[in-house]
Amino acid sequence: MKLNVFRLAIGFAQPRGGETAVLEDINLRIPAGEFVVILGASGCGKSTLLNVIAGFLKPSSGEVWVDDRPVSGPGPDRGVVLQTDALYPWLDARENVGFGLKLRGISRQERRERADEALRLVGLEDKGDHAIWQLSGGQRQRVSLARALIADPDILLMDEPLGALDALTREQMQDLVLEVWARTGKTVLFVTHGLDEALYLGSRLIVLGGQPGRVLLDKPLSFGRRAVEERIGGRIKSTPAFAAAREELHDLFFAGAER
């Protein structure tokens, strides 16, 4: 499913009147199956953009289209994973994963089967009966990912989903996300502020920046796909090509400050 964003602008009303523009003139054409990484400094409007695409926020102007329909609100065609897991602590892990199916009135038995299947996909097949507070941060994020996947959305919107994890868990989860993408062929929009994470995961990199925020850079990437195809995973981060790309990206952010 393709995702199109036309001349999008978003501003927030200020308490004392007036409006601050957060994003301006954002145009994106994202074909199905792409892994788009959105990179930018904190506060540049990454979450705002994702919230508009998810349908949680109305833009000030411009439009978001999924295939041939304009987005007017949230919908099950766009799955969402956030930085804070936002799981439902009164449900166990399996019920959390099956939550979207419950909303559709699917029977308990089928919910259970499909939730277990989704838990297997994220490597938590033995944790279905666990309460949320019994899971580690990484496990919780896997549950959130499974919860988003079970509704079988065409587009996966992820807002710094690995931001709160420790470095090792984060690397593991990067591989999991890549694997899920490669296996399901879903369109992914992945927000991050990590340079390595952005370069490693994306099949396309979009850098946001400026006041108000605009698209500063939009270019294809191939590290993630190669890492999956060649089965080398995170080791691709040690290749000269990766280092060169990292340097280039680093300069884009910090060159001005160093001179």
């Binding site: 919230n51 998810a54 349908g55 949680f56 609100g73 949230p74 919908g75 099950p76 766009r78 799955g79 969402v80 956030l82 804070t84 936002a86 799981l87 439902y88 939550f99 979207g100 419950k102 909303l103 559709r104 959130s144 919860r147 988003a148 509704a151």
Partner: peptide, 22 residues
């Protein structure tokens, strides 16, 4: 929690379901 509400909305919850389940 706002995020819990938004996640449920993204999964297709109606207003009644939002109230009942979140």
């Amino acid at each position: 929690d706002r995020n819990r509400l938004n996640i449920a909305r993204a999964l297709g919850a109606s207003r009644v379901q939002l109230f009942r389940h979140v």
